[in-house]
Write a protein that binds this DNA or RNA. Structure first.
Length: 678
DNA sequence: CTATAGCGGTTTTTT
DNA sequence: ACCGCTATAG
């Protein structure tokens, strides 16, 4: 840690350790460096014990990277006990200790989107279902209320929207069901943490004593629940340092309230405010483009990003024929640029608005034998076969988890069909006992039919046997393997697969769960089944292949990710793909929320990820749902001054003459201003 | 209770 | 194009 390498503003931020601090940090202004230095400064110069420091980030990836960088600065030993985590991991830490005070049991389950949706769908059926209401929309309304800390009693429908009305009706039941199942959803992790600290001063006191220095990254993306959590934790010592940039606020859609950052000075009148405006990341050209785009947003704090560096290359804007062509062009450029600029694969990032866009690039990269890593897109843990395995484990940990219990009750098929399941649920409701308790006695329930009775009895026996086995300790992965073998999961998967090749993939996916568990077990000091499930639920799996040298080398890979997950990262060369209307800005923002500004910020985030080379790509047409659709270039392209761009079209389009190609390219890029007047 | 075919919705972003 | 859910028949 060498403070003399910092600019005056950065240094001031590092040295301001006591009292509230607002750090307005533009993209690429060395923000992470300041945060990590500040932590190192606290540890080294102020001799702050590591366990007194809490740094909260927005993603697991960011947390991991920050931790690593601090480790590099001060050494691993000095950071032991320091907390660098996401809000949700921090909440989990609080809940794990004391959730019993709120009437939940310690072995609670975490419900992700799919579990929540299933629950809401069931509840929707419970209330007179005149018409099919979209469970996801109801869920979204409930989630929105929870992120604003509204209790079921406080929730009042704000419109006559059917989802809104259904949400008002279902929110109380939903919350009651979760509690009965001893489960929490993502919003609860924050909401219950806040409630716990609110209602139990002794607990709050404990954390205030321990967490004496709080730091929050991406503060512009905090929602009211997160805000309240921070307020509770820092009241008293008020050592709160928040870092953010309103131009990079991209989570309003899930409840983030940019007022948190805009009103910080109101909340803390004695706050020190420091602006970081010098950019150390990108070339002048890239910065000019970014500034030109973001300038079109009206409600924002005026900022003047500048660089002392060179202006660099022009930005390539490439019109491609279609999606495959776009992927081909990107991969060709990776080959060429890698040679020309001596770049490694890891220096390239392909950024897109929606995760589905990754597929074409994956295919092309694989075809060309270029290593790549796909970030986000929780596709793996969302696969059916994976969720099935996890459901078993979840029920072993928390038998009250009814959503998962119902998922596995007749899978693999064991002769407990819908009729029996419905009866069991009814009995459970009548007797007000958990479903699992009913199952335990179902061996002797004449209303169930003999076959079902036997099936249930042996299911219960199996689960209890394995619960005991897991309790006894020993290798988790080994026991999990035994469980899957005993369930004959593999056979079941093959039986249900319409083609053996697909079945094989699914079996491999299932085995990957066991592998993930094994590697969790290896790296954790005291691994537990519930610990594993928690990691999986919070998507806090390690980046693949860390550790050995071969794995590190294997990590030299092109990176594919959504614009959202790219925030906070930087790459020498960035491909911003799908620069088309309805992708960026996204269709939904056009038709429903009208929040073009947030889409523009997203575009801004993408542009500012690039250090030296930036390419903007789009397709003239695309296959969608199997049919070809003509595409319109993104309005954001037209916001970039022409002198910063080098317009090109992808080569090799045999079905068009050169004149046609020219015409198409001209229409695509030059004529688009006319399209924007709508 | 299970197997199958047909239907409809899917595609925003993340913890 | 594809997946998962539902209705229907066995």
């Amino acid at each position: 840690m060498n403070l003399s390498t910092l600019n005056p503003e950065q240094r001031a931020a590092v040295q301001h350790t006591e009292g509230p601090l607002l750090l307005l940090a533009g993209a690429g202004s060395g923000k992470t460096r300041v945060i990590t230095c500040r932590i190192a400064y606290l540890l080294r110069r102020c001799e702050t014990p590591p366990q007194a420091i809490v740094a909260v980030t927005f993603t697991n990836k960011a947390a991991r990277e920050m931790k690593e960088r601090v480790d590099d600065l001060v050494g691993r030993r000095q950071t032991k006990g320091m907390i660098v985590s996401t809000f949700h991991s921090l909440g989990m830490r609080i809940l794990r200790e004391d959730i019993a005070k709120l009437g939940y049991k310690k072995n609670f389950s975490i419900y992700g989107a799919a579990d929540q949706a299933r629950l809401v769908r069931d509840l929707l059926q419970g209330i007179g279902g005149e018409r099919k209401i979209d469970a996801d929309r109801v869920l979204w309304k409930i989630s929105d209320a929870k992120s604003r800390l509204l209790s079921p009693e406080q929730f009042v429908p704000r419109s006559q929207d059917e989802a809104e009305l259904a949400a008002a009706q279902l929110y109380p039941r939903y919350q009651r069901a979760l509690k009965a199942f001893n489960a929490v959803d993502f919003d609860d992790i924050l909401l219950l943490s806040v409630r716990l600290l609110d209602e139990h001063p002794d607990v709050l006191e404990r954390y205030r004593d321990r967490f004496r220095y709080l730091m929050v990254d991406e503060y512009q993306d905090t929602n009211p629940a997160q805000y309240r959590l921070l307020r509770l934790l820092c009241d008293g010592h008020r050592n709160l340092c928040v870092v953010g940039d309103d131009d990079q606020s991209i989570y309003a859609w899930r409840g983030a309230d940019v007022r948190n950052i805009l009103d910080f000075e109101k909340d803390f009148p004695d706050a020190r405010v420091i602006k970081l405006e010098q950019n150390y990341r990108s070339t002048g050209t890239i910065l000019s483009a970014a500034n030109a785009v973001i300038r079109n947003n009206t409600k924002r704090k005026e900022k003047a990003l500048w660089t002392s560096g060179e202006s660099g290359d022009l930005i390539d804007a490439i019109l491609c024929d279609d999606g495959e062509d776009e992927a081909r062009v990107v991969v060709e450029h990776i080959h060429a640029l890698r040679a020309r600029h001596e770049l490694a694969y890891r220096d390239f990032a392909i950024l897109y608005r929606t995760n589905v866009q990754s597929r074409a690039f994956e295919e092309q990269l694989r075809y060309e034998n270029i290593p790549y890593v796909l970030i986000g897109g929780q596709q793996f843990f969302d696969r059916k076969e994976v969720k099935d395995v996890l459901a078993y484990l979840q029920v072993l940990v928390n038998p009250r988890d009814e959503v998962n219990l119902l998922r596995i009750l007749n899978y693999p098929r064991r002769g407990i069909g819908d009729t029996s399941a419905d009866r069991l649920i009814r009995i459970s409701a009548e007797q007000e006992k958990p479903l699992w308790e009913i199952l335990k006695g179902a061996g002797e329930m004449p209303e169930l039919g003999e076959k079902a009775q036997d099936a249930i009895a042996s299911f219960v026996a199996l689960m209890e046997r394995f619960r005991e086995r897991f309790r006894r300790g020993g290798r988790l992965a080994e026991k999990c393997r035994e469980l899957l073998a005993e369930l004959k999961m593999e056979d079941e998967i093959y039986r249900n697969a319409d083609d053996p090749a697909k079945g094989k993939r699914r079996v491999e996916n299932m085995e990957e769960v066991v592998n993930a568990m094994a590697s969790y077990e290896e790296r954790e000091e005291s691994p537990t089944l519930s610990g594993f499930l928690e990691k999986v639920s919070l998507l806090d799996r390690d980046t693949p292949g860390r550790g050995t040298k071969e794995e590190k080398l294997a990590q030299d890979a092109v990176i594919l990710m959504s614009l959202h997950s790219s925030k906070g990262l930087e790459f020498p060369c960035v491909f911003l793909v799908g620069m088309e209307e309805e992708y960026l800005p996204h269709k939904k923002s056009l038709h429903e929320t009208f929040d073009i500004d947030e889409e523009r910020r997203l575009c801004y985030v993408g542009i500012t990820r690039a250090q030296r080379i930036l390419l903007l790509l789009g397709a003239a047409r695309r296959k969608k749902f199997g049919r070809r659709i003509e595409r319109v270039p993104s309005r954001f392209l037209a916001e970039i001054p022409a002198e910063l761009l080098r317009h090109r079209k992808s080569e090799a389009r045999p079905e068009l003459s050169e004149a046609e190609q020219d015409k198409l390219a001209a229409g695509f890029f030059a004529g688009m201003k006319g399209l924007l007047g709508e």
